[in-house]
Design a protein around this nucleic acid. Structure first.
Lengths: 236, 236
DNA sequence: GACAAATCAACTGTCGACAATCGGCTATTT
DNA sequence: AAATAGCCGATTGTCGACAGTTGATTTGTC
């Protein structure tokens, strides 16, 4: 999940199997703890304690926290320590807004570069969404949902945008993990991708951008609303 | 230059003057060394050596390098060490493409939210560009050029985008520092901002976006070309 | 009983040390 | 002479330790 820079580099057959790295493993532990709620937003994550519990020294623990800080999941106050980033609704809205800018741009470029094979891949991915939706596998569907949007960015061909998309989706997933389930109805979620595919098949850039904007705007409003509700609940 | 998260927090008058932090100071040193060419792209930056030269221990040196890695200026190969990121032309093109997506989106939002005071600030900034251009102060002009574009992002109101813009401009400045001066003629550079201001004053979003796209596209082509030339020179 | 000062445990920032690993050099082999 | 194998210095990853802070608790005062 971390540092998934790219697939196999072009021209090579194998991908280097990197990092049984302590830092990465510690970071993953923390990410998991945040994801499943053991670490609540705003909670302090003391490097000494973390290192003690994991049986390592403080150096790699500290580095792992710094890594997560650079990914936005952790914030640090100098001489105070590290804390789980407590996203607020405004911030999530900002991130969605950013994502919209990215993805609309990527989609625009993508449509011009898209091969039939790409269309088929996207089609298959949407089919997967429907299948998971029908099976009620909401968790898995969320992953594949991001997969679809990531594909769009990939086809756009700008690696920096893909990297940023990965960054953002990590944050969004973390933010969403806090409020719990995203959509009540996975079948509906799957269906929202159909108009996108239609526009792609017709190679209609304007329509794709319009649909995509709507698609993301809905998601944004939905998440922000859920988040405000959750905040209101928590406040009492 | 590093970690300039935001201006003064809302509701406060002063901004905490943070971090006589060792890590930050080391990072700044490295940034400067990269900026003025003492550290060439691809050069190895050994943490032990860095620490020795700066008279600190390895821990903060290592953290500083990790920080710069998260900002893209440094890349690390596990068990191999840290190296100055050697940008290639494609990568710079990708970054410019990303910047275009960001800035067009921010500008669009900005125009809707813009007050007269904002317009005046932007106007003043362009005037500064002209002044510096006329004085032939190219270095300072580049800084203020980024300042203008940052203002646009700020007015757009999405903090995440501003943060990302800062991130990107750090990288671009580093990339550009490698090829040397960006524009031969600072007067011309200043002038390229006039059509943007005209569109802003007329509150014409479509025109602003069109002009801005052209403005950035020119810069992108210019930089990428310069960069390819520099690479061709260096290769012999 | 409430507020302010002193105390204290825990934590962070920084340091030097040690073992494992890497890249380059030398010696050996064909 | 070219290529390979083994060795060596240098560097990284990790560790435990120490001093200075921080926030919380306790103590003392009005």
């Amino acid at each position: 999940m971390l540092n998934n820079d790219a697939g196999a580099p072009p021209g090579t057959t194998f991908q280097a199997l990197e990092s049984d790295d302590l830092v990465t493993r510690i970071a993953d532990q923390v990410v998991r703890a945040i994801g499943d709620g053991r670490l609540r937003p705003g909670a302090k994550v003391a490097e000494a304690k973390l290192a003690r519990e994991l049986g390592t020294s403080r150096a790699p623990a500290r580095e792992a926290l710094r890594l997560l800080e650079s990914q936005g999941l952790i914030v640090s106050h100098p001489r105070r320590g590290f804390f789980v980033h407590a996203y607020d609704a405004d911030e999530l809205a900002d991130i969605y807004d950013l994502r919209e800018a990215l993805e609309l741009h990527a989609a625009d470029t993508a449509l011009a570069r898209m091969t039939e094979a790409d269309v088929a891949r996207l089609d298959a991915q949407v089919a997967t969404l429907h299948r998971l939706g029908a099976a009620g596998m909401a968790q898995e569907q969320v992953v594949e949902d991001y997969g679809f949007h990531r594909m769009l960015c990939e086809i756009g061909g700008n690696r920096r945008i893909v990297k940023l998309f990965d960054h953002i989706s990590t944050e969004l997933r973390a933010g969403i993990a806090i409020v719990g389930r995203l959509y009540d109805d996975p079948v509906t979620l799957a269906a929202t991708h159909d108009p996108l595919m239609a526009a792609i098949r017709d190679r209609d850039a304007e329509r794709l951008k319009r649909e995509l904007r709507e698609h993301l705007e809905d998601a944004r409003i939905h998440v922000v609303q859920l988040f405000r509700d959750a905040a209101a609940d928590g406040k009492d």
